[in-house]
Deep mutational scan, measured.
Amino acid sequence: YDEVAAQGEVVRKLKAEKSPKAKINEAVECLLSLKAQYKEKTGKEYIPGQPP
Rank of each mutant, 00 (worst) to 15 (best):
P51C: 13
A16G: 06
L34Q: 06
V10H: 13
Y38D: 05
K15A: 10
E26F: 03
Q7A: 15
E3Y: 05
V10C: 15
V28I: 14
C30L: 14
E26C: 06
K18M: 12
E17L: 11
Q7F: 00
A6V: 03
R12S: 06
Q50Y: 14
E3C: 12
S33F: 11
A5F: 12
E17N: 11
L32F: 10
A36K: 15
L32Y: 11
V10L: 15
L34I: 03
V28H: 13
R12T: 05
E17P: 01
I47P: 08
I47E: 14
A36I: 03
E40Q: 11
V11Q: 00
E17K: 10
Q50D: 08
Y46M: 04
D2R: 15
K41I: 12
P20C: 09
E3V: 05
K35M: 10
P20G: 11
Y1E: 00
E9T: 04
E26K: 12
K21Q: 09
I47S: 12
E45P: 09
S33D: 15
L34S: 07
K23P: 00
K15C: 03
Q50V: 12
K44L: 00
T42E: 13
E45K: 04
K15R: 09
K13G: 02
E40A: 11
Y1N: 04
G8C: 06
K15V: 09
K44Q: 00
V11W: 02
Q7K: 01
Y38H: 06
V4P: 02
I24T: 05
K15Q: 14
P48F: 04
E9D: 14
I47R: 11
E45V: 08
V28R: 09
Q7G: 02
K41G: 05
P20H: 08
E17A: 14
Y1T: 01
P51L: 13
G8A: 15
K13I: 03
G8E: 04
G49E: 14
K39Y: 07
A22S: 12
K18Y: 05
A5R: 09
G43P: 01
N25W: 03
L14I: 08
Y46Q: 05
K18F: 04
K13Y: 02
K41W: 06
E45N: 08
Y1P: 00
V28K: 12
D2S: 15
E26R: 10
P51D: 14
L31W: 11
E26Q: 12
L34M: 10
V28C: 06
L32D: 14
Y38P: 05
E17G: 10
I47D: 09
G8L: 15
K21P: 15
E29G: 08
C30E: 15
N25L: 08
A5Q: 05
K35L: 02
R12P: 01
V10W: 05
A5H: 05
K21A: 10
K39E: 12
L14T: 07
Q7Y: 00
Y1Q: 00
V11Y: 00
Q7M: 07
P20F: 01
K23R: 01
Y46N: 02
K41D: 14
K23L: 00
A22N: 13
Y1L: 09
